[in-house]
Design a protein around this nucleic acid. Sequence first.
DNA 1: GCATGATTCCATCATTTGATGGTCAAAATA
DNA 2: TATTTTGACCATCAAATGATGGAATCATGC
Lengths: 215, 215
Amino acid sequence: MRTALEKARKDPESMKARILAAARGVFGEYGFHGTTTRMIAKKVGIDISTLHYHWGDKKDLFEAVILDMNRDLGRELIEVEKSIHGRPLGERMKIAIAMTTDYLFAHPEISNLVLHRYFSKTRHEVNLDFKVTEFTGDIARSMGLTTDPKKTPPQGMLEVLTVMNGIHNFVSGENFFRPMVKLDREEYITMVKETLQFVLIAGFTNREGKELQKV
Amino acid sequence: MRTALEKARKDPESMKARILAAARGVFGEYGFHGTTTRMIAKKVGIDISTLHYHWGDKKDLFEAVILDMNRDLGRELIEVEKSIHGRPLGERMKIAIAMTTDYLFAHPEISNLVLHRYFSKTRHEVNLDFKVTEFTGDIARSMGLTTDPKKTPPQGMLEVLTVMNGIHNFVSGENFFRPMVKLDREEYITMVKETLQFVLIAGFTNREGKELQKV
DNA sequence: GCATGATTCCATCATTTGATGGTCAAAATA
DNA sequence: TATTTTGACCATCAAATGATGGAATCATGC
């Protein structure tokens, strides 16, 4: 399956890649059990047997989707880290929130998939590393929430999760939340960024201020 | 169905109530499509035909579950509001976060169901009011995030959603996050509360401080 | 052009799953 | 007690769904 993924990545026009892209979207919207292989095949405009030919069974395809999504998310986080390197904490967070929010709104299926995996059980075990721990630790280090670069303390992990999940929530919940506030998409995205920056940053900068005072 | 719900509420030992309780749990864990009527029936220890006899089809049962969960959540929010009434903002939020977190960790299927409805589509439309808008507005007013008690501005709604979802995330994602931080359940709950209070409150109290200075 | 392998679809299967009819026992009612 | 109503289960159905075999088609290298 690893090779299949690589093939799909090489040529985005290939059938493998088209199926993978469609699967990302549908699995994201409906979850694993809410998605049928027929739904994916229909979206691509092919027969289900073609789908199975390229990706094996439903679980294999799902795992490929997770790996693929994981890679994209990881790359984006690296981009973010590049952009914030060296700046003061408040600014780092502000930029990181804005960049990540924009990116995820452009690829909402990523947030969908992430949240599904957090909150939903699958009847048959899907065993995948998912890299969340790794990513979370990286972000924590990048935000200076830990001194030991090897392992992040629980507190730092939960703090990062609070921020990341705050973003995912508004991206993935757009269909639900946007009608509540009656904004068009652009306004919604802007207001989400402002709200997240307003709510999520102050705690961290306040703490840093206190620590600096001590010194 | 309304009547069936009332019957179930009257006698928690009744078959209707037992099915409803089991359904809450299973729908919460696996989502609508991930749940089979057989899973629920098995959990109760009855035949599926008995389940259908009491609750009609799967969608009817699911809607009853949502209504039931909704009522419980609404009641809890009223309790919270009673406890925080009249206190200063920072304290209000601290207590509200602590109470709500404790309550939801004691009834995690509520968070599960809420998040599933936010983030997951259902193949066949389930039409339910879900009261989120109402609840969110109530909380916004209770937190003093709006001057007009009739309608809450989008900003206030998103701010409340940020906080509520922050809580739901850690409750519903316990199976995923707790192994990441290697804490036992009690430690995890304590640290979640501390983290949420740390991250989510400062923005609001900072702003209030600024507004007070202006006056 | 032709042979070989890769790809796609059609037809079909087996299993899962939502749902129901009919039977029987228990409980309520007369 | 006799009768009706309610509640539970067994057997079974129909549709949905994951999956596959095999034929047909297309592409590629010779």
